[in-house]
Amino acid sequence: MLHVKELDVYYGGIHALRGISFDIEEGKIVTLIGGNGAGKTTTLRTISGLVTPKEGTIKFKNQNLLKIPSEKIVGQGVVQVPEGRRIFVELNVEENLMMGAYLRRDKQVIDEDLEYVYKIFPRLKERRRQMGGTLSGGEQQMLAIGRAIMSKPRLLMLDEPSMGLAPIIVEEIFECIKYLNDNGLTVLLVEQNANIALQLADVGYVIETGEIAFSGEAKSLLKDDRVRKAYLGEE
């Protein structure tokens, strides 16, 4: 579904991505794990068109994503839940959700999708008139995911959804990602929390200093010694 090939990205003089390649099959959950500054977020930003790579190709369903501006990439169904949620703090919950549907014109289906989001996150429904900035961290993450669902994603990319959240909330969020995937949504999950990400995902890629160090089935990566030492804190 998504094919990333030999991606090279520079930030000023810094070589942030050094020839990253990976593939996502339809219906799967793929995770990119790695430490701080490894290039996970940069990879997502490049796919979303917020960063222009020096070299490489990104193909989504045989379309070259590098040729289209970021606002049109969303229209293609490649939707990102950015790091740190980035919800609109001065808009209320429902307005935030409706911003996700900004490009859509199918009013009836939008209403159905809104109900769908409220079904997945009943807490958002309770707070629909509350300003985004007054929500707790977990609720903001739910809102960010809900907003992305409103964009009708075919590929949902999540950047560190567990960041700064209590373990019980993280569990809730990951349940929801699983639920969405069970309903047919393809997911690209970027995580520092390798343990929880690999438990959920089908396929895992490990990024180190801008390169894919190794990859494999998520279940086997969980048992891999290199992963256990570097990311799961085991001896």
């Binding site: 703090v89 808009l91 307005e95």
Partner: peptide, 24 residues
């Protein structure tokens, strides 16, 4: 208006606005 909402979003967070499909 839709454009007005896009304006408010862009002023709050231009990058997030782009991720919503807003032509900033």
């Amino acid at each position: 208006t839709k454009l007005g909402r896009a304006m408010r979003c862009t002023s709050q967070d231009m990058e997030a606005a782009k991720l919503m499909g807003i032509n900033t």
